[in-house]
Every structure is written in structure tokens, then in C-alpha cells.
């Protein structure tokens, strides 16, 4: 029984990390209609900015976290305004542009910091234990930040005029623009919010796991999987799917093994998508 509970905690911990990543990914698709293949790059950048601030500049970790969020949000804003905005109506072009931007980011990080992992540890190192059940304090912090991020994103998207405007743009860009909503302000804001979330996740999670230029690849794959499962563009769907993916991954890996566990997860996602091609909570047609 202890093993079952411990596995559940691991699943929740994984789910919270996936939620933070998936929220940004799904926001970008939901509002801009762009599948952001550079999402993993912003995650890695967040990690390296936090690492640079703490290890090279000697700043405290919370300050480094804020700088990581700010710098990834700023880069996201610039990227959307200067590059993505020019091709936003062409879905294939946005795929190529975001993928290309990811490669540029990953290569730049590789050139600056090298291919090897630096020493970058979470400032809180202890582990809570109760018999055979354990939960690292660092994971508790991530879970707390994840819950706060979910609340913040929901509040912003569903309870503010800014959120209403963004949802209106997502519903019908032409009509929303005709009503006076400003695409050139709202789109970069949404993109910056999402990339800031990715940067926050990178700054929080890489010291718990590992920091290296390539760690954005699996992050992109899992974000994509989670968001497809939840329904592209659905914030609620992404949150629910992230915790499903985390729990299935944990239980399948513990009880079936690493190889079969990964297989189980992908087969389950495949079955769900055969039954509900639009994902768990996605809409069948996206109009904007």
C-alpha cells in the first residue's frame, strides 16, 4: 500500500510539471492557433538563465526565478512581434518558424554553455518521509507553483477583460478586431505569458532533474502529447490530461517496468484519441 501511495505522489509530481508546460503550450494554440515547437527551447532557456543568475552572478534563487520568467517572456514577446506575427496566418510557416527558432535557441545555448550538464541544484534539498512514502520538498514547491499557475491562468483567461479579449480573438479574429480588440497587443502578450510559464517551469524543474541544452526535446514531446490528449487549446483539458499522463506514467513504470510503462502511456493516449479525436475536452472545430 505504501508503494501505491508513493507512486501516486510521484504521478502527481510529474503531473504538476507537465501541467506547467502544457498550460503555456495550449494557451498559444488556443489564442494564436500556433503549435509552438519552440516551447522546449524556452524551458531550457529558463533553466540556464536561473543557473547563470545563481551560479555566475550569485543572485538568490527566487530572484533568479523571476529573472528567468521575465527574460523568457520578453524573448517570447519579441519573437512573436518581430517574426511570428508576419506569418501567423500560414500554419505551415508557423510550424517551420517555431521549429527553426527552437534549433537556434538550442544551438546558442550549446555554444555558450557547452554540451555537458552544469551543477545546478534546487536550494531546498530535504525529503518528507512517512514510512515507505516520501516526497521531496522541491517537488512540493513545484506542485505549489503549479497550483498557483493554474489559478492565475484561469483567473486571467476567464475573469479579466484581457482574458475575455484573448478568448474573443481565439473565437473569431476578424470580428474581434472589428470590435476594437488589438491583435498586435494581445497576441504578443499571450505568447509572452506562455513562454514565461515555460521559462518558470525550466527554472523550477531543471535543478530538480538535470540541466543540459537538449532537455527541451522530451519536454516538447510530452507537452505536445499532453495538450493533444487534453484537446488542443483547452486549458482545463491540458490540466486534466497532464495529471492523467503523470499518474499513468508513474503507475505503469512502477508496476510494468520502464519500457512497458512508456508503451502503456502511448497506447492509452492512442485509444483515447481514436474514441475522441478532439481530445478529452477539446472542441471539434477551431474557427479562428
Amino acid at each position: 500500500m505504501e508503494g501505491f501511495i508513493a507512486t501516486g505522489l510521484i504521478g502527481i509530481s510529474l503531473g504538476s510539471q507537465y501541467t506547467l508546460l502544457a498550460l503555456g503550450f495550449t494557451l498559444i494554440f488556443g489564442i494564436l492557433g500556433v503549435v509552438n515547437f519552440a516551447h522546449g527551447g524556452f524551458y531550457v532557456m529558463g533553466g540556464y538563465v536561473a543557473y547563470y543568475c545563481t551560479s555566475m552572478l550569485g543572485l538568490s534563487y527566487p530572484v533568479a526565478l523571476l529573472i528567468a520568467v521575465g527574460s523568457t517572456a520578453m524573448l517570447g514577446w519579441l519573437f512573436e512581434t518581430l517574426i511570428l506575427e508576419r506569418v501567423i496566418e500560414d500554419h505551415q510557416a508557423t510550424l517551420m518558424v517555431t521549429m527553426g527558432f527552437y534549433l537556434v535557441m538550442a544551438t546558442a545555448i550549446l555554444m555558450i554553455f557547452g554540451a555537458e550538464s552544469p551543477e545546478f541544484s534546487f536550494p531546498i534539498a530535504g525529503v518528507w518521509r512517512a514510512g515507505g512514502v516520501y516526497f521531496p520538498y522541491a517537488n512540493m514547491v513545484v506542485l505549489g507553483v503549479c497550483l498557483a499557475a493554474i489559478v492565475l491562468v484561469y483567473w486571467l483567461v476567464y475573469r479579466t477583460n484581457l482574458g475575455r479579449a484573448m478568448r474573443a480573438m481565439a473565437e473569431d479574429r476578424a470580428v474581434a478586431s472589428a470590435l476594437g480588440m488589438r491583435t498586435k497587443v494581445l497576441f504578443p502578450f499571450a505568447f509572452a505569458l506562455a513562454t514565461g510559464l515555460a521559462g518558470l517551469t525550466g527554472a523550477l524543474v531543471t535543478p530538480i532533474l538535470a540541466l543540459a541544452p537538449h532537455v527541451g526535446d522530451p519536454v516538447l514531446a510530452f507537452s505536445f502529447l499532453t495538450v493533444i490528449l487534453g484537446g488542443l487549446g483547452s486549458v482545463t483539458g491540458a490540466t486534466v490530461a497532464a495529471f492523467i499522463v503523470g499518474l499513468v506514467e508513474a503507475y505503469a513504470a512502477v508496476y510494468l517496468g520502464g519500457s512497458k510503462g512508456a508503451l502503456t502511456l502511448f497506447v492509452l493516449v492512442l485509444i483515447i484519441l481514436v474514441i475522441r479525436p478532439q481530445g478529452l475536452l477539446g472542441k471539434e472545430v477551431r474557427r479562428a
Binding site: 509530481s13 510529474l14 510539471q17 532533474l209 519536454v219 503507475y251 513504470a253 517496468g257 520502464g258 512508456a262
Partner: peptide
């Protein structure tokens, strides 16, 4: 484990 795994907590539990 599957190459590309980033969080090994479930593998460690097993």
C-alpha cells in the same frame, strides 16, 4: 528505461 526519460522517480521506485 526508454531513452529520453527525464524523470526517473518511477523507475527508482521499481
Amino acid at each position: 528505461y526508454q531513452r529520453g526519460t527525464t524523470n526517473f522517480a518511477p523507475i527508482v521506485t521499481r
